[in-house]
């Protein structure tokens, strides 16, 4: 494991969080500190060890493809930050044709 310096601005862009300059500096130092601590995992010989995603028995679960009751549309849309009729309204995603 290498101890690369974390590019906080780039990672925040991936995570869709706007950061202030102050946060970039503070989080950069704190995350760098945490990454130093996790370097300890480099001591482990894990070449032949399988990865664990889930500890307790798990299997793929399927159910019959039948219609079941769902949340009422009005109940859900009532909590929308902005709605337009039966839709969630969001800022424009595709630019208008020139």
């Amino acid at each position: 494991m290498s101890s690369d310096k974390i590019d906080v601005r780039y990672v925040a862009k991936l995570a869709r969080i706007a950061l202030t300059d102050d946060e970039v500096e503070r989080f950069g130092a704190q995350l760098g500190d945490l990454l130093e601590h996790v370097q300890a995992l480099g001591e482990l010989d894990v070449a032949a060890v399988p990865a664990t995603a889930q500890v307790v028995e798990s299997r793929n679960v399927q159910r019959a493809d039948t219609v079941r009751p769902t949340l009422d549309r009005e109940t859900v849309l009532a909590q929308a930050p902005q709605r337009q009729g039966p839709f969630f309204r969001v800022p424009r995603i595709i630019a208008e044709a020139e």
């Binding site: 494991m1 974390i6 990672v11 969080i17 995350l31 945490l34 990454l35 482990l44 894990v46 990865a51």
Partner: peptide, 28 residues
């Protein structure tokens, strides 16, 4: 925010095997 950032970093291209997968093996 800190945890989202560290998690995003650990899952990002180029770091996924070194951090996330190695942690899953340590979990084993």
């Amino acid at each position: 925010k800190r945890r989202i950032l560290i998690g995003t970093y650990a899952l990002s291209s180029g770091y996924y095997d070194a951090y996330y997968v190695r942690a899953q093996k340590a979990r084993t």
